[in-house]
Write a protein that binds this DNA or RNA. Structure first.
Lengths: 193, 193
DNA sequence: CCAGAAGATTTCAGAGCTAAAGTTTGACGA
DNA sequence: TCGTCAAACTTTAGCTCTGAAATCTTCTGG
């Protein structure tokens, strides 16, 4: 059901691990070189960024286990979220993921080769193409969610019930403010979840 | 003091803006397709990830204004943080940024061309090379910090004094937990701050 | 029936990166 | 004084991912 040539799917390029300081040290260095910085703000921002980076790394690992890349996962997610019958056209997918149609075509090529989706002409309107999730593709997405649920809970294990509500509310307020000040800033880093 | 050929520094490839749902809708769709998901956890994670993505986009914009890329910014930061006299070797830089030496060489090539750093042989030990921050490079980093301070404060404007302390503490606890469960996961997304 | 629009793909080029080979320089023992 | 080896950086080759623009196919409306 998968590929003939087992394209190495998602093997990481074995790169050097980055040297990383603790948040406090980092902020202290910033203060030394840029004295007017607000240490508290800087600490919050740094911590938040670092948490999200670590989560990203964790997701990537899980995906590596599943043998897909985060680019492929994004497509699976878009199809699943579109709901049954899990079909979308390349153009629509490109729009949702923020890619050009050309990039989408290539991504789909790979995914078809991996058996994650199928590509067919729409017989009703032969200009259109239908990308449909395969059983394999859907299973991989579901499995990725199961794995994610496990470590997301793990990450939050020190944050108690009440505190979770507060954290959620605070982050939400922050996001609203950001969206307000940067209206069109819909970046395209892989959001991975 | 800058480049001869004004290499377009950091011009964005004008790509389609990604379609994005609100957090609540997103989580609702996840629940529909994966009923065992914990909505609160998912909401927290999604929000946090989205906040960090938007911040990344905001940083990138600032850098575009300054005419540098985030890759170049990372190098500037490493040099500034290393302290006066703002010198490091390519190998050391590569280690700190988590790149291979080859990638570092190329990055430095670009930055020398842009007048952000200088590259010289170490006359004391001619095997070594010294990368040194220029005035321009240091100024760009300082300016980026000034701009960042402005919008970081803006993002946090709805979070009051007391709440900031709590947020900081909560995030810190979360980060510690993550670092504990993923000891070696020092990913290398641009951390940008 | 033809012109033009819409949708997808192909072609071409560019940015970054890695791995591996190559170059220069310094260190050290015979 | 060599000769060899190691260290540090650079060069080369190749890969993946992407965007822009050209191309191809098919539908639609006059």
């Amino acid at each position: 059901m998968t590929t003939d040539k087992p394209r190495p799917a998602a093997d990481k390029p074995a790169q050097a691990t980055r040297l990383e300081l603790g948040i406090a040290e980092q902020v202290a260095l910033y203060q030394r070189e840029f004295p007017t910085v607000d240490p508290q703000v800087e600490t919050i921002v740094q911590t938040l960024l670092r948490v999200s980076r670590r989560m990203g790394v964790a997701y990537d690992r899980q995906l590596t286990v599943l043998g897909i890349t985060s680019a492929e996962w994004e497509v699976l997610k878009a199809l699943v979220v579109s709901g049954s019958p899990y079909q979308l056209g390349p153009g629509e997918l490109a729009k949702r993921l923020g890619l050009t149609p050309a990039a989408m075509t290539h991504r789909i090529d790979r995914m078809v080769a991996d058996g994650l989706v199928t590509r067919e002409r729409d017989e009703a309107n032969r200009v259109r193409v239908i990308i449909e999730l395969t059983e394999t593709g859907r299973d991989k997405w579901l499995e990725s969610m199961r794995m994610a649920a496990v470590f997301e809970e793990e990450f939050l294990q020190d944050i108690a019930g009440e505190e979770r509500t507060e954290l959620s509310a605070t982050l939400d307020r922050m996001l609203r403010r950001i969206e307000e000040s940067q209206p069109d800033a819909l970046g395209r880093t892989e959001d991975l979840a």
